[in-house]
Write a protein that binds this DNA or RNA. Structure first.
Lengths: 186, 186
DNA sequence: GTCTATACGAAGATAGAC
DNA sequence: GTCTATCTTCGTATAGAC
């Protein structure tokens, strides 16, 4: 009984990378096997329900990363603008300056949406709510703050799509530079 | 030799609908066959290179629609704001108020991007350029106009993703209501 | 131009040895 | 926990009749 060569979390990270590279439908057991270095049977040991379980694991891996690197930026002891800048920087790193896609996009297309949309709705909703709370701190009414937070997430996701289509990260980089400004109404 | 039951253009429209429903990888010859009412062999008669040809046909079908319903709004004899409102309304119709996705998103994911990204880059670039030209008419410098046009397209694509994830068209509808304002700096 | 039938490999999933 | 081997179904594509 050999020790596992990879922790479940490391496996999930590699699965996430493959889903981001190929999309949900585009990733196959063969490509996921290659990405993790595990045989198909080993993958089924970790994920008894196959590809959908792997999709869930990828979403959880994103959740862990956001919980460790993104959300904490909003709880720091610093002015709102500084926190939002750090938040924006954390997102830029996660999306590799706009060169890597978001599961919120990939996992809501076609039948993948039937499995993952509810989960993603909660996630995106939570993110918008957390951003809005920071904006409210600066004296903005709740309703307007929510609108701005939603606009900020809209801009981020849109810039990922546009960057991908134009083949340059410039739109994403520019959008994330303006991210705090959008939220603070500057 | 029976006459074709559908024109090539009608076939392309149905193929487009199926790709928007399922994504590029998610659409299969079986689903495309069902969507068009044609057998697989008939599809290969129209599209000898199979699925990639059908993807190209879907892109061309979008091009026809935009050429007929979207781009002409910018050439009308009316004030810039009125033209931009009509442009925004035409987009809203094409995206069914935010409930149907954009091929710019779907066809740049995974290996589909290898086939279609260059085409989509030209398309999106042309759209941004056309919008920027209208903004320039209102006295805005070219560089700033291009930025606003890009921002407007970013907002539109982002609102499609966010609407899909949240399961409501509200973000798209709100974004398209502000579409002319973003371009005119209001 | 459309159909039925079919070839062939890929995809998801499982069996069972070690 | 990982592997090889295998099963079944699906996906793409073609052959050939009408």
């Amino acid at each position: 009984m050999p020790a596992p060569s990879l922790s479940r979390e490391e496996v999930a990270q590699r699965i996430l990378a493959e889903f981001r590279r190929s999309g949900y439908q585009g990733a196959t057991l063969a490509s996921l096997s290659e990405a993790t270095g595990l045989g198909k049977s080993s993958l089924y040991h970790y994920f008894p329900n196959g590809k959908t379980d792997m999709g869930t694991a990828a979403l959880e891996a994103v959740g862990v990363w956001f919980g460790e690197h993104v959300m904490p930026t909003l709880a720091e002891d610093a002015p709102a603008e500084k926190r939002l800048k750090k938040f924006s920087a954390a997102l830029s790193e996660f999306y590799a300056k706009g060169s890597k896609p978001c599961l919120t996009d990939l996992f809501t297309i076609g039948e993948a949406g039937e499995f993952f949309q509810q989960y993603l709705k909660q996630r995106l909703g939570g993110l918008i709510k957390a951003l809005a709370a920071v904006v409210v701190e600066t004296g903005v009414p709740a309703e307007e703050a929510s609108r701005r937070a939603e606009d900020a997430m809209i801009a981020m996701h849109g810039s990922l799509v546009v960057s991908r289509a134009l083949g340059t990260t410039a739109p994403f980089v520019r959008t994330m530079r303006n991210f705090p400004g959008v939220l603070l109404g500057q």
